[in-house]
Amino acid sequence: MEARQLFRLDNEVLAFRFTATVSDRAGTAPRERLSSPDLLELWLDAAGLGVPGVSPAELREAIALREAIYRAGSAVAATRHPHPGDATILNRVAAAGRPRPALDNGLAVWHLSGKSPVPDALGVLAAEAIRILGGPDRSRIKACEGPGCAGLFLDTSRGANRRWCSMNTCGNRVKKARLADR
């Protein structure tokens, strides 16, 4: 199966795109999309962080990182400080990775080491989360108001009044529901 059929890849913030590997977080039955090492490998490849293989232990580490990013992002969206334990996870994973940014054919890419590509890829995600959660745009981090979603996004709208993680998914669902109610 293709990554675009399995995962939501439309979030402009890579770390928040990673948190979207759980669907319907605020709904009655959240859906885990990283249920195997192979699926994490597929997601990393789709995110431009292709790795040659993922172990079950690396999958557990990735899920722990993803949940720390989500909890920290939710706290920031609610104008609170992230829990110190989540900050510790983000800092540890970011420090463990040794990715190198590069400009390749005019595009920014990440080069992962041959020795530890999965920790390097997770380090990219943790560093991106740290940059967004602690950077100058942190006041623009929001949680989606779409039914059942609660996905994180960076509101880059001029008026800072965006309500949905994606107009194509959550925003569209809300608009369709409003039309149906009329």
Rank of each mutant, 00 (worst) to 15 (best):
G50W: 04
P117Q: 02
L103I: 14
P119V: 00
A78I: 06
K115H: 11
T88W: 13
A108Q: 15
E41N: 11
L125N: 03
L59F: 02
A62L: 03
L44T: 00
N105Y: 10
L39T: 03
P101K: 13
A29I: 08
A129P: 10
I130D: 02
E67C: 06
N91P: 12
N105D: 15
A64W: 08
V118H: 08
T79A: 15
A108W: 14
D155A: 02
R131Y: 02
C149Q: 01
W110I: 01
S35G: 10
H111P: 07
A26M: 12
L65P: 09
E128V: 03
A29W: 10
S157G: 06
S116E: 12
S36G: 05
G148Y: 03
A29P: 12
P99L: 00
A150E: 05
Y70A: 03
G48H: 11
D38V: 03
A47E: 05
A129C: 06
A95M: 13
S55E: 12
I63C: 07
A94K: 13
G48C: 07
A62F: 01
D86C: 07
G148F: 02
L112Y: 04
G123H: 08
G97S: 07
P136H: 10
A129R: 09
N91M: 12
S74Y: 09
P56V: 00
A129W: 05
D45Y: 11
K142T: 00
L107R: 15
P119L: 00
D86R: 11
I69A: 00
L107T: 09
A68D: 04
E145H: 10
V93Q: 11
D104I: 06
G114F: 01
S74G: 15
L40N: 03
G53S: 08
L40S: 02
E128T: 08
D104V: 11
I63F: 03
A75R: 14
P84R: 12
L39A: 05
D155C: 06
G48A: 07
G97R: 07
L103P: 13
T88L: 15
P56A: 01
L133C: 05
G48S: 08
N91F: 11
R100C: 10
L133T: 01
P84Q: 08
T88C: 14
E61C: 07
R92H: 12
E61Y: 04
F153K: 06
G148T: 01
G151R: 07
G123F: 07
G106C: 06
P56W: 04
W43D: 00
R158W: 05
T156R: 15
C144Q: 05
V109Y: 11
I141P: 12
G134N: 09
T156K: 15
T28K: 14
P117K: 03
S139P: 10
G146C: 02
L40Q: 03
R98Y: 06
